[in-house]
Amino acid sequence: MAPSGDAAGEDLSYHSDTAPLAVHDLTVAYHRKPVLWDIDLDIPEGKLVGIVGPNGAGKSTLIKACLDLIPKTSGEVGIYGKPYRQQRHLVGYVPQRESVDWDFPVSALDVVAMGTYRQLGWFRRVGAKQKQAAMEALKQVGIEHLAQRQISQLSGGQQQRIFLARALVQNAQLYFMDEPFAAVDAATEQAIVKLLQSLNGEGKTCLVVHHDLATVTQYFDWVVLLNMRVVAAGPVAEVFTQENLHKTYGGQLGLLNDAAKALSYVTR
């Protein structure tokens, strides 16, 4: 299961051939307007990484570009040294909760079982084995009692946990999570934090798009400050500084207060 890029060794264009994620010279543009500009990023193994930045900074775009969901204008992304399409089995993806219609006629268990579809392959049905795996994942996020519930009858936090469970069922090495903390209740927030820590304990790497600056130091050990470009990336203690936050959030007055609040945590 442990990936090794050195054995393959043929693709040397990536920064690092063992890093879970190596982004090199990535530029993404929508309709000629660049959203991400010359991104260079190396994420080391086994870190909990927060991706923070103002609205429109390209946080979701970065994740989507890594997962080939949107076309890259230029640049390369390596997942354990290879292109994503060869490494899908190592990656779990948690999209934003708002990206789907929650009035869809499926149960919580059905959604989690979708995490097993790739392994199942074409035409094969979800069987007892897949249901069991989905149930285990639901247990990990603490809502196994809601397995048969139709998804529209769940709270926002519970829906978010289902998305997490769907990624867990894939048993990946590297997780991309797009705003899992957005608009969830306190109980869910704690459950997600616990889950992140347990994934971290198993040596897995998690990239989490995050909005709440006040909790960055508490939840993550690495941080990427993003605003169209990478302002800073590294261990929280080193790069989550007043100066860097000003560079990231600079023009946005409303957010300076948040940043100030966050800094009081850092300096404390």
């Binding site: 989507k64 997962l67 080939d68 969901l69 399409r85 899908r88 990656v91 993806y93 999209p95 990206s99 789907v100 219609d101 869809f104 499926v106 959604v111 979708m114 579809y117 790739r118 769907r166």
Partner: peptide, 13 residues
């Protein structure tokens, strides 16, 4: 899968 979550489907190949 296509109808429920296109992005996830695509990310899964």
């Amino acid at each position: 899968l296509l109808c429920f979550d296109e992005g996830f489907a695509s990310s899964q190949g």
